[in-house]
């Protein structure tokens, strides 16, 4: 596998972006957004940060299709976990309490 040399400036930029994300998470925690937005905002920041880590710090952006396939299958399995768990939460109130 060919090694891709990443310039330190890229790492530094990603690091600063992650720090910014952390700061935003803390700020968002002190604000009360309407409705379900609290969770949506926090999770969106977390997903963006995780994506940056996977793409740059784990070098996936510069990796072969096989690595992309593996990352994709891991995300697919995560989707299974979420989908079937949510099938419980989504339908739990469909039956009226006895």
């Amino acid at each position: 596998m060919s090694e891709h040399i990443v310039h330190p400036r890229v790492y530094l930029t990603i690091f600063l972006a992650l720090m910014l994300g952390t700061g935003l998470t803390v700020l968002a925690a002190f604000r009360d957004f309407p409705g379900p937005l609290n969770a949506i905002v926090a999770l969106t920041i977390a997903v963006v940060k995780a994506t940056l880590v996977i793409l740059y710090f784990m070098h996936v952006r510069y990796s072969s299709r096989l690595i992309w396939l593996i990352i994709g299958s891991a995300l697919f399995w995560l989707a299974i976990l979420f989908a079937l768990t949510i099938s419980d939460y989504w339908t739990r109130t469909w039956l009226p309490p006895l």
Binding site: W77, I80, L84, S87, D88, W90, T91, R92, W94, L95
Partner: peptide, 21 residues
Amino acid sequence: FLVWGHHLFVSGQSVYAGMIF
């Protein structure tokens, strides 16, 4: 990986999710 909910049939899991599992 798709069947774990059968451990939760009497735990308070939704009966609809129970049917899928």
